[in-house]
Simulated scan of single mutants.
Amino acid sequence: MPIQSYVALLRAVNVGGTGKLPMTELKAMAGELGLANVRTYIASGNLVFDSQLPEAEIKAALEARLARHAGKPLGVIIRSADEIRDVLAANPFPEAPGNRSVAIFLDAAPPADALEHARHAGGERMRLGRREIYVHYPQGQGQSKLIIPAAKTGTARNMNTVAKLVEMADAEGAPSARSR
């Protein structure tokens, strides 16, 4: 398999005082696993890197290494540079401020009825993506009472962060599948 750029999104890292993991340690762990050109973005578990390994192997290796470090399982969502670019391009709320719209990244496609099971909506707009659930929080995520059961095992990143991860994946590292 050729080298390509990937993004890893860790779940529940440095949020609300739980899951503390300095990004320097995360970067070192990724290097120990043979991931190349490793970069991090803000202290919420965003990792950009290059690898020849397939997504499933990267995910398994990172989750195992993080579990050894933390003493408990930590979820990791992997996307190729092309996929993260597609997530940004598919944002169904491009007119909304980037800090008020998120993509909730999932390992698999959300169930077709996922949004029907959402509770406590108060003006939020939601749309299903390929392996994401998009949400626009007009009053901000911190003010929302919205619960989406299908998103429980996912991890959210606002569109500003997604855009920065696309920029990082495009700026350095391996060519994407589209550029070959």
Rank of each mutant, 00 (worst) to 15 (best):
L74G: 00
R79S: 05
L33N: 09
A96P: 07
T40F: 08
E95N: 11
L47M: 07
L26M: 10
G75P: 02
L62Q: 00
D82M: 02
A61R: 14
L33P: 06
A64R: 02
T40A: 11
P22I: 07
A36I: 04
E32F: 03
L26P: 11
I104A: 05
A90T: 09
N91H: 05
N91E: 07
L47P: 05
G98P: 07
R85M: 04
H69Y: 12
A108H: 14
E57D: 15
V48G: 06
A90R: 15
K59T: 06
R68Y: 00
G16W: 08
K27Y: 05
M23H: 10
R68N: 04
L66C: 01
A30Q: 03
T40G: 11
A30D: 06
A64P: 00
A56N: 03
E55S: 13
Y6G: 05
L10M: 12
A89Q: 14
V102N: 11
R85K: 13
M1F: 06
M29K: 14
A109S: 14
K59P: 01
A89G: 07
P22V: 11
M23I: 07
T40S: 14
S101L: 02
A81I: 03
V7L: 12
I104Y: 06
I84V: 15
G19T: 11
E32H: 13
N37H: 13
V102W: 09
L26W: 11
S101N: 12
R85V: 09
E95H: 12
L66P: 01
L9M: 13
V7T: 09
L33Q: 09
G98F: 12
S101F: 03
S44A: 09
V87G: 09
N99H: 15
G17M: 10
V13E: 05
S44M: 04
Y6Q: 11
E95K: 13
S5G: 15
A61Y: 01
L53G: 01
I78T: 04
R68C: 00
D82S: 05
A96R: 14
S51I: 03
V7I: 15
E83G: 08
I77D: 01
N46F: 05
H69P: 00
P2T: 13
A56E: 12
A109Y: 01
